[in-house]
Write a protein that binds this DNA or RNA. Structure first.
Lengths: 204, 204
DNA sequence: CATAATTTTGACCAAATGGTTAAACCAGTA
DNA sequence: TACTGGTTTAACCATTTGGTCAAAATTATG
């Protein structure tokens, strides 16, 4: 049978753990709360995932693997640079719209335990060099301004991620705590970030 | 006497609490660790700051008040917009270079307890409208592209803050974990962010 | 100096928390 | 039916942790 049985205990635990860890972080989460959320006995958590640390690592892996969607195909495609960057930004913000909690969670935990982050990165086989090469070729071809390609990456990520990570603050300061207005703002970011980035790096 | 006596117990506690809270966050911090760091008895913490929550709030207030340096004078000055934005970015990144822990800490805690954040904001008397008005005037005058002024603010903050908040991840992915190289990168951000922002919003 | 007020400490407490364990439950199956 | 394997539970444990308290130490005051 290849039917996805998503109602077994292990998945109930993973779902519950995700919910709680995202909300409270590793330090703030309680095993009892995860058990309640999953509707099971606390001892079952340990039966399936020995320790809190191991359970957390499973969740972190799951969530982090979404952070860098397959950009490989995009980078290697022969679209013009303008399309490539535009699509990247669009896909990335779409991901954040669907998982608005991701930035907060990841930023919190990469700072809490960078060692663990390193092991995750390694296990995921992420290769930023590919992107850098591509950007440098575009510079050579005179399509975009000459600059450190890492700046471009950091800029795109920062512009996309920050409004999600700082949501409570931005919403309060710039939108009088109006939830709907801020969510609308986030949706429109797909276009504004795209424009902003392209305006700043495309050759005049 | 108006001499600053910074070696009294209360300040020792504040210093220690800052160190620990920044590193571990509210949830991860331990009162005993703060006491050790301050070189005093744990009961003294409670003598001076009744509860962990109250001590944390004191620290958060202290740190958060640095987040928005006096931009009022800058906004109201009659410098050309290019100078205004440039100076803002420079001062802001300077602040982050001196306190590289600020973004992580603030982002973590504003998401943990947005209610408290609201009270802090209110007590600080921050008025973003002033900045928005100024930016809109510049748009009317045709100095910068027409756009939602909040986008400009979010962009400037995101570009400045993100590389500090995501330091472990960026350092690892883009700089092969080379600390010195990444710090150099952060220093250069003052100029690159400035260029990036101005390129994207100044009228051609 | 004597007394009052403040500051500091060690010992202690109750609650919370991650984790363990022995027993119960519940298939499947010989 | 009786046995076997994995699964689930209630009760329990050791440790950690925020917080309290009475006494000691220190400082101010008359």
């Amino acid at each position: 049978m290849n039917t996805i049985q998503k109602d077994n205990t292990e998945n109930k635990i993973l779902d519950a753990a995700q919910t709680v860890f995202i909300q409270k972080g590793m330090d703030g989460a309680r095993m009892q709360e995860i058990a309640n959320e999953a509707g099971i006995n606390k001892a079952l958590l340990h039966y399936y995932f020995r320790t809190k640390q191991k359970l957390f690592e499973a969740i972190f892996q799951m969530l982090f693997s979404q952070v860098f969607p397959n950009i490989e195909t995009l980078v290697l495609s022969d679209l013009p640079i303008k399309e490539k960057l535009g699509t990247f930004i669009e896909k990335y913000i779409d991901l954040l719209l669907k998982n608005p909690f991701l930035p907060t969670f990841i930023l919190k935990e990469i700072n809490r335990d960078p060692e663990f982050l390193a092991s995750v990165i390694k296990s995921q086989g992420i290769k930023p060099e590919q992107i850098f090469e591509m950007l440098e070729k575009e510079m050579d071809a005179g399509k975009i301004r000459r600059m450190d390609p890492r700046e471009i990456m950091v800029n795109m990520l920062g512009l996309s991620v920050f409004p999600f990570a700082a949501k409570p603050l931005m919403k309060l300061m710039f939108f009088e705590n109006d939830k709907k207005a801020y969510n609308q703002f986030l949706k429109e970011r797909k276009n504004t970030v795209k424009e902003f980035v392209l305006n700043s790096i495309l050759m005049p």
